[in-house]
């Protein structure tokens, strides 16, 4: 489903060349839940950005659902991002001037989904995250945990095959973090593939597959067998 071969990312300034990723190889099968850990500055977010097509890679090949992402135009990349990927950000990234309904509606509008279908999906997603009664509220009227649940609802509304979460619990207390994690687990159980960047070792251990990024490379991985998935085993075997 997701295949990265020898991916590199170089940030070039006038005087400095920074290799954020080098020879990065990863295979992700459908339905996996992967936790990505690593020290600050190791390249976790760069990996997530490239996986989510938020920025282009410098070298190597990235295939998403059989599509060579490196060969897409800016518009094609935007469309593919909209169709296949849902994002959950550390800072929630909700639009403060829009209420919850309108926030969730944003990616659906870009997908060109008709009004009635948009409404149906938004209501469904809000119900899923337990915030159906607060559709007209503005983000600032909610707690951090609730805002992250709205962000998850927004990520789910487009029915993406991939959920990319960047420190989804980084701004939450432990109770809310656990609630959000449980929500992600239930979404994964329904079939969505999730890649989650986190600093929290406790949360990472809850993911069936755990990979570590150090100095821009895939350093190590551990497969937690408490939620064994055959596809995960295959994928990790490839990495070994």
């Amino acid at each position: 489903m997701l295949s990265m071969k020898n991916i590199s990312k170089v940030y070039q300034t006038e005087k400095v060349q920074t290799h954020a990723l080098r020879d990065f190889n990863l295979e992700v099968a459908e339905g996996e839940f992967i936790a990505v850990t690593g020290p600050s500055g190791s390249g976790k977010t760069t990996f997530l950005n490239i996986a989510g097509m938020l920025e282009p890679h410098t070298g190597g090949q990235y295939m998403l659902d059989g599509i060579d992402v490196g060969k897409l135009s800016d518009n094609q990349t935007a469309d593919l991002r909209n169709q296949k990927i849902g994002f959950i950000f550390q800072g929630f990234n909700l639009i403060p001037d829009l209420n919850l309904f309108e926030n969730i509606e944003v990616p659906l509008r870009y997908a060109g989904i008709k009004s009635a279908e948009r409404k149906r999906r938004i209501v469904e997603c809000l119900e899923k995250v337990g915030l159906a009664s607060r559709a007209k509220h503005l983000p600032q009227q909610l707690s951090g945990g609730q805002q992250q649940r709205v962000a998850i609802a927004r990520a789910l509304a487009g029915k993406p095959r991939f959920l990319l979460a960047d420190e989804p619990t980084g701004n939450l207390d432990s109770l809310m973090a656990r609630q959000v994690m449980e929500l992600l687990e239930s979404i994964n159980e329904e079939g969505a593939t999730i890649i989650m960047v986190t600093h929290d070792a406790e949360l990472a251990r809850r993911a069936p597959r755990n990979i570590q990024v150090v100095d821009g490379q895939l350093a190590d991985f551990t497969l937690y067998q408490n939620k064994t998935i055959e596809a995960v085993a295959n994928a990790t075997a490839m990495e070994v």
Binding site: G52, L54, D74, N75, A78, D79, R81, N82, Q83, F87, F89, G91, N93, I95, P96, V106, P107, Y110, A111, R154, G158
Partner: peptide, 16 residues
């Protein structure tokens, strides 16, 4: 800026 980046991440084309 962040909101615009988020919109782009959510699938907005430059033209949007």
């Amino acid at each position: 800026t962040k909101q615009i980046g988020t919109r782009r991440a959510l699938g907005a084309r430059k033209s949007a």
